[in-house]
């Protein structure tokens, strides 16, 4: 069978199946379970009306449960077993993790990432959005700053590997050091600060996102409030920080939290830059270390990540809803 016919057939079966399900289940409800022609037809109609939404929602709830809820529960369940998955060890994987140095470093670094990356990306995005707004070549500048968004994390890491390269003929940092007569260093091996060099790649990529959203928000501010503050004697700094920024506060929070959980999911940048060496491990890359070798520990790490993401996520959704 040719793939085209196969595809068409799939669509027909899928759509037809849906229609059949809704029609048939509705028919069964109205004619067999709660028929509207017996003595208590009023009650039956009411009962059918109460059941109907659940009937129609069932496929969606089932699919969401299968693909979203089951993996969460399943992962947690798996994390209670040993590496082969045969022996139940309770919270043994978690005990092990919290006792392990590598895990603690990863958690610490992860909090550094959560604090630094969203803050820096949102701050730069906001400043650039404001500065480019009135420029004739502002849109060009914005497109350039937005571009890193389109690069994959691995691609971006490669670019920055060149920037950070040890060889003064390749890496710009060492080229500058070289011109000042200093010997080259590998910035990715400087303890603690190497984290920031890696984080900066993420900042570089996310600033464009923050800039685009915040730029739109800044344009949505009523011009009269800005004019009123000019008449009130505010200088450009006061206008920006006391009139404009407070008015787009909720957008700033949404951007901030969105970047926060993008950051919580990052593993590729660390993986490609250092492979987690030199104390640059973060939780997702730490999880990768165990994946396929000890699924019990890997799922335990995944669960810890989820617990960290959860509050940020809830806050983000609340803010987005308030916005709407």
């Amino acid at each position: 069978m040719s793939p085209i016919i196969q595809g068409i057939l799939t669509i027909i079966i899928g759509v037809g199946g849906c229609i059949t399900y809704f029609y048939a289940s509705n028919w069964v409800l109205d004619h067999l379970i709660f028929p509207a022609r017996t003595d208590d037809r009023g009650r039956n109609i009411n009962r059918a009306t109460m059941v109907r939404p659940w009937l129609f929602l069932f496929p969606a709830i089932f699919a969401l449960g299968l693909y979203l809820v089951y993996p969460v529960v399943g992962s947690f369940y798996r994390s209670l077993f040993n590496r082969s998955g045969e022996e139940f060890i309770g919270l043994g994987n978690y005990y092990y993790l919290f006792a392990e140095d590598g895990f603690r470093v990863a958690v610490f670094n992860n909090f550094l990432w959560i604090l630094f990356v969203p803050a820096a990306a949102t701050f730069f995005g906001l400043i650039i959005a404001e500065l480019t707004d009135k420029l004739s070549w502002g849109n060009l500048a914005k497109s350039l700053i937005f571009m890193p968004m389109a690069i994959s994390f691995v691609g971006a890491s490669l670019i920055w590997k060149f920037v950070y390269a040890n060889d003064p003929d390749i890496g710009i940092i060492n080229a500058v050091r070289d011109s000042m007569g200093l010997s080259p260093i590998d910035v990715l091996q400087i303890p603690f600060w190497n984290n920031f060099f890696i984080m900066f790649i993420m900042v570089w990529m996310q600033t464009g996102f923050a800039m685009v959203i915040l730029s739109a928000a800044l344009r949505g501010i009523p011009e009269e409030t800005v004019e009123a503050s000019i008449l009130d004697g505010a200088n450009p700094f006061q206008i920006f920080f006391r009139i404009k920024v407070p008015q787009i506060r909720s957008t700033i929070i949404v951007v901030w939290t969105t970047i926060t959980f993008l950051t919580l999911k990052i593993f590729d940048i660390v993986y490609t830059m250092t492979g987690g060496n030199f104390d640059t491990e973060i939780l997702p890359s730490y999880m990768m270390d165990y994946m396929f070798r000890d699924d019990g520990r890997a799922t335990a790490v995944a669960f810890v990540i989820m617990l960290i993401v959860l509050p940020v996520m809830i806050w983000n959704i609340r803010q987005a809803q308030r916005e709407a």
Partner: peptide, 20 residues
């Protein structure tokens, strides 16, 4: 500059600072 002219203006859309 506007602020030093000794004038105050009332706008059609009120132009109140919404966060204050």
């Amino acid at each position: 500059p506007p602020a030093q002219r000794g004038i105050a203006m009332v706008f059609q859309s009120y132009a109140l600072y919404p966060h204050m």
